[in-house]
Nucleic acid binder design. Structure first.
Lengths: 240, 240
DNA sequence: ATTGTAAGGTTGTCTGATAACCTTATATGG
DNA sequence: CCATATAAGGTTATCAGACAACCTTACAAT
């Protein structure tokens, strides 16, 4: 018995958009070039103009084309396109580790900057996150969320929004992966030490000592990596 | 005389999508919740169904909602949404510096990892980038591009794709900003020292000495910051 | 030479209809 | 009673055609 994928034609506009997107990213259409008119494309592809319009709308949304009413649709200059990162990639262990590896220097730097720049408000939010971690006795979904909130709060305290965005993204993905992959039972016994590490980090930030904050964050992340059975090179010997 | 930009009411569907997007990101609509039907929205907003459809299509491709034919449109779970970073943010000097500040730890880490993991191919690509930098006598657009290629090549040599993606994004934005803001004349006289720094970095990577590679990258970035008249805290005293 | 006007083409929006699809309720047969 | 089939209604997906808004170009008017 063979079920074979029924080509659910997964959204007609998306397929058309994908095809045009490939034409653009692979260089068959150059920046500044004008796309055929909607009428032409509709006729050529054998679909209605609505479908073509939706496809073009998607391309516009992805930043690949710009449209001007009464004129046409044009391929955008490459540098105007936004970055976009899908998930689905961190399913395997390799990419999980890669993501963690990316996280380490960012978080360490953030801790240092947070020590320098945090406001009273920032510190209050960090303390709140810490409280909600200690409060709940369980290292369940809420614990994971609280951890995420804590790291976000630290990132926010840098006063640099890029750190918030990037760390928020990374930490969230990692927390999710942990949530999915690890048994809660294993993690419960190590929750205390984790909280200790967080408290140490919080105090270092509060004392406005960037060096100590960086060290505390580094210790925390290395501890986390160890608990997750990850090995990170270059951090046993690195001086800071 | 003031002309002020005429508010071209910039695309009806985009405004509607924006409004709904705000409802979602600001928590007024919860993940899993069903949106009103297209008919209802069209009636309620006083526009045609086409416009509503286009708005929803935009939300779908931003990953904020999912639609199921014959059922409806639903707010997606937050963790399924892709990250997306527009430019438009780094117009002012503040965010330019913020971006640079984010770049520093990433590039330093990447240099260390590149020293550990680079293959012969990676090194070849780094050398090629270096050659095209030294080759062109001018620090024009081509010079900027070559610099970008160099940093990308280093990032690729880490063997960690996340570094490639993030650094690629950041470096490109920064290079563009430099291209736009700085006079080429000023930069021409310092091109030699920049190339020297790149060569030092390349050699450190080639010798598979992560500590030296990190240091070389750090020196390069601090030098670049200085040339751009940026001040980065925490790097005069930080040990590594 | 500058300004006004008309024409044609393209995207934006509207309207209405049909197809494909899902859910739920009801009927049917065991 | 239970499982399956069928029907009904609602929703999104697609189609078709029209008009509106807008831009460009060419040409006429001043």
């Amino acid at each position: 018995m063979e079920f074979g994928h029924i080509r659910r034609s997964e959204h007609l506009p998306a397929r058309i958009a994908g095809q045009i997107a490939r034409d653009i990213t692979e260089g068959r259409m150059r920046p500044g070039e004008k796309l055929p008119t909607e009428h032409f494309l509709a006729k050529a592809l054998g679909v209605s103009r609505s479908v073509v319009r939706e496809a073009i709308a998607q391309l516009r949304n992805e930043g690949l084309v710009e449209t001007r009413q009464g004129v046409g649709a044009f391929v955008t200059e490459a540098h105007a396109r936004p970055i976009r990162i899908e998930q689905d990639d961190l399913a395997d262990r390799q990419s999980f580790r890669d993501l963690f590896q990316l996280r380490v220097p960012l978080e360490i730097e953030a801790a240092g900057l947070a020590a320098l720049h945090h406001t009273a408000d920032d510190l209050r939010r960090i303390d709140e996150a810490l409280a909600s971690m200690s409060g709940g006795e369980k290292w369940t979904a809420e614990g994971i969320v609280a951890d995420l909130v804590f790291h976000r709060a630290v990132a926010a305290a840098t006063g640099n929004e890029y750190f918030s965005v990037f760390i928020g993204f990374i930490a969230e993905r990692i927390s999710l992966a942990i949530d999915a992959a690890r048994a809660a039972a294993v993690l419960e016994e190590i929750v205390e030490v984790t909280i200790e590490e967080h408290v140490a980090l919080r105090d270092a930030i509060a004392s406005r000592d960037p060096k100590r904050a960086r060290k505390a964050m580094k210790m925390h992340l290395l501890g986390a990596a160890k608990r997750l059975d990850l090995t990170l090179e270059g951090y046993e010997v690195a001086s800071d």
